[in-house]
Amino acid sequence: MKSLFCMTSNPVERRYVVRMWVAAGLCVVSALVAAVAFRLGHLKDLPAYPVAVLPALPILWALVETGRFLAELKDEFQRNLFIQCLLGGIGGTLAATTTWGYLEDFARVPRLDLVWVYPIFWLFAAITYPVVYQRYR
């Protein structure tokens, strides 16, 4: 589980961490490229779609890598911990975004941009980690 945050001696975990960092870097770069392209190129209609989707591709890759990591992780206890963290991430994201949605509808709070769903998911997964880990100490 240390793999989520730092380097480890397990090659499967190390590969996963490296790929996640690469995906995060690509996401930032592609978001900047898309922002500049829209600002300078005045993209609209059909040509705008592939450029707009560009930053989402590294995120899709990261999700695929997460699935692959789960499949390759030999240690069933570690896999169990990681799955619980992912469930915490999914549950937290559903709860937070649904609650925020009702707040938007009825309390007129600022609209939450959907691009924040992915970071919110990992934020909740990271918050879940110490809670889960504490149970097995």
């Binding site: 030999k74 240690d75 069933e76 206890f77 570690q78 169990n80 149970r135 097995y136």
Partner: peptide, 22 residues
Amino acid sequence: LEVSRQSVNAIETGKFDPSLPL
């Protein structure tokens, strides 16, 4: 067993039940 020390500890303390293969 080719698992982590945390796995052995969790099994030993009865907090985690291993799969049949393990």
